[in-house]
Write a protein that binds this DNA or RNA. Sequence first.
DNA 1: TTGAAAGCGCTAACAT
DNA 2: ATGTTAGCGCTTTCAA
Lengths: 339, 339
Amino acid sequence: MATIGMKELAKKLKLSTATVSKALRDSYDISEKTKQRVLKLAHELNYVPNAHASGLRGKKSKTIAVVIPEVADSYFAQAINGVETVAQKEGFHVLVYLTHEQVEKENLILQELLNGRVDGVLISVTSQSKDVTTIDKLISTGIPVVFFDRVFEGQGNGQITTDDFDASYKLTVHLIEQACKHIVFLLFSESLNISTQRMNGYKRALHEYGFNFTENNLLICTNQDQENKESIYKLLARKDRPDAIIASVEKLIMPTYLACMERNLVIPGNIRVAAFSNLVQAEILNPAITTITQPAFEMGKTAADLLLKALKGKPIDQEESNVVLPSVLEIRNSTKTPF
Amino acid sequence: MATIGMKELAKKLKLSTATVSKALRDSYDISEKTKQRVLKLAHELNYVPNAHASGLRGKKSKTIAVVIPEVADSYFAQAINGVETVAQKEGFHVLVYLTHEQVEKENLILQELLNGRVDGVLISVTSQSKDVTTIDKLISTGIPVVFFDRVFEGQGNGQITTDDFDASYKLTVHLIEQACKHIVFLLFSESLNISTQRMNGYKRALHEYGFNFTENNLLICTNQDQENKESIYKLLARKDRPDAIIASVEKLIMPTYLACMERNLVIPGNIRVAAFSNLVQAEILNPAITTITQPAFEMGKTAADLLLKALKGKPIDQEESNVVLPSVLEIRNSTKTPF
DNA sequence: TTGAAAGCGCTAACAT
DNA sequence: ATGTTAGCGCTTTCAA
């Protein structure tokens, strides 16, 4: 049993496919009566237009791609949710592609999108991404690209980010106010804008409060949990052991907590810990962790809205294409000075 | 600058599109030399075949849909990862649809997939889903449907599940061995197979150990976090307050922990808590929570493998289409008898 | 070994 | 207000 197509629909109605097509798209030059007839039967027979045919014909696929490093991260999971909400409302389909933090994969994926599969792209780049040629190619092909969170400055048709610098600054100040004297920043990538923004906010706070910033203030992490845990474990044995750690991305929370446990260091008694994270369970961690929480859902929503607006050919002013949403510093027990 | 199409490619090579097409698909009746020439230029010019054209022509879209209740849940995030891994390897694209636990949405989504947009469907149904007509329609249209985790017994082209009954039984026995006398099971849905399986394993253990099962052993939860928290909060004030709680799905962990905190009940001192959850951070919760962890990634992978196999028209035997993977009971502090 | 041509299902320009 | 028809880009007979 195949699905019904427009031709059969037309035949049953004793109309031409053209009329049916127009009726379905609510064209002005079809009589109300005919429209009703068509709509009714289409509904009854569960007519669904063939996506490839309309895609081929109309050069529109009603599909967008979301290209992200991974799904198993609260931020991205929540962001996808936001994207999906908008897409569903507007009748768009969402293709999800995971780069697994590999630039090469990212590039292959973007290449594949060059030929009509999607109308637009939402992307949060890899920690090593630098090259914009494929993205430029997409755009010059007429496929708008909107960045969110991990953006390339000044690229694409829009950028949705958070105030990483400020948030990081505030968090660092908070730690300093909790009497921390040696805060180590766990850096995730040296090229990612979010990483440098976060690092710079941290540096700025250090500077303002008269602390020196040296290489010892930074621990460069990778995408390997085990590796990270070992580096942090070693970090905790340094003679100038830090009295606070800032995990610049969510995935660094686990290795940090575990390393502390293994070293028998109590958080926050012996060491304070804070993280950039959207983890829903932040409050019930042991101890509850102070976080900078991004409006992830909102960001996904905003990015999708912007993309769809671009797809509709609506004019987009500078302000709209460059949105910076505020993160929230949620202070919890992991950074509170115990008495 | 538009993207290059096969026609231009053919012209530049002084060949017909037919030859180019065959060369690209490595057809037997094209000379090796021509194939090389075609492949070379195609690569140089970044030729990407138009997805809609091939989709329309060949009735194959190289796309599968993953229909799930939500992404912001460790299980689903990990499962998508598994699906994506297989899809990427096989050159398939993945459309993700969220039902937000609403049957109506689920149905609309499935309806939309009836017409060629995807070659196959992976689904984990809504907590209220009961009707299989759309799924049957998909299958009879030639679009295979594979269920994972939240399945309809005996439906579709395959089912990937875990040993929920056994896992739940084991967990309950564990609690009983920890001297728990009044274990309450937080039920998420009354119709979902995973829910009933989990509940039945629990009941069985109670029974075997000589405990009565009454309505008081069950707390029916919803999809509303706040609502759930309140029910649990009330539960904790009953004269026969439970000495253990089993959260049958991950999202019930937060309300449970929070309710306990608000009632000043210490886990596991005053009450023990365990959950079905794939939360990566289980170990660093306060306290570390005992979980039944499903092989989520593996399940996604297995489901995708099965679906692709069906798409390739390979024969699938009963055993293959009905996979039950083992969950793991990870005992942590939340259920340990304190001394 | 290569090419000509039909057609996948739909849309839109152009008749009627 | 409705119908005819061409064509989107590709694949696949079938003929050369």
